[in-house]
Design a protein around this nucleic acid. Sequence first.
DNA 1: AAGATGCACAACCGCGTCCCA
DNA 2: CTGGGACGCGGTTGTGCATCT
Length: 299
Amino acid sequence: MGRSPCCEKEHTNKGAWTKEEDERLVNYIKLHGEGCWRSLPKAAGLLRCGKSCRLRWINYLRPDLKRGNFTEEEDELIINLHNLLGNKWSLIAARLPGRTDNEIKNYWNTHIKRKLYSRGVDPQTHRPLTSSTTVATTASNSATGTANNTSNNKTSSDNNNSKSCLFEVQNYMTAPLMQVPAGTIDANVKAGNESAEESNSSSGVTTSEEVFPELNLELSIGLPYQLHQIPSINIKELRQQPPQQKQQQVSCEWYGNLSQGACLYCHSGFQNTQACSCKAMGTTLTADNIYRYYRPLNS
DNA sequence: AAGATGCACAACCGCGTCCCA
DNA sequence: CTGGGACGCGGTTGTGCATCT
């Protein structure tokens, strides 16, 4: 059974937004706030579907967006986060203030992939572009074996790699966070690849229980200043909660359901064990601990 | 100067998830 | 429990601009 269309396509504009449309959208959101995207176009006098309005606002018109080129620091952060999270652009964007998932995704595809190839690193697996890789990665690397052809990488192997990456993260997360040294990615890559390849070459098979030492478990990755910000959880759903429920629901699990915040553990499918420190802390997040795991976009 | 090609990025599309009646 | 609406995400496409030939 098909889904009903999000809008009446014959009565909506498509393509590039005009300045007037932008102004209408911005003015409306300034007055009424975000949300209720389906009804927004009509209320704002726009011949657009709600989805299009939402995208235009989030990716282009939002006042807190950072303009201009990515810094070297941001580059490295994106690479590290991609190593951890795979193609979870929204999660990555949540760690980069002022950047959108779409922007990061585009930047990844146009710049960072090339940068990694030039370093001899496979952008999907974050491993050296050599043929001596593990059995587990052989299938995916067969596509990346044509390292110069990025378009060839847009195959199902990409998906497999993303899933594989997340799966690896999940495996890692079975270890308590504090037992993992907060080393740098570079150091871990250097030390880890050798041991990983060594163990793989001896066994010949990568099992789901094996770990991948090059992954950096320092989950407080982020631009430094945001770690000290006091978050302002100004989310629609939170406002709608009865007052007595608010504190109780500011929990890891609760926030894990919101795309605007990101618990790296929960979003990676990790639940209900000691490694998920935000759960272990109890149900209340504090200003001290929240930024280890979350960065609400509208903070 | 003009067409071809490549690049960057805005925008679209389809699907998954959540929530509620 | 179930079906449908709304939203968000990731992949893909379209388009304008820059560079090359």
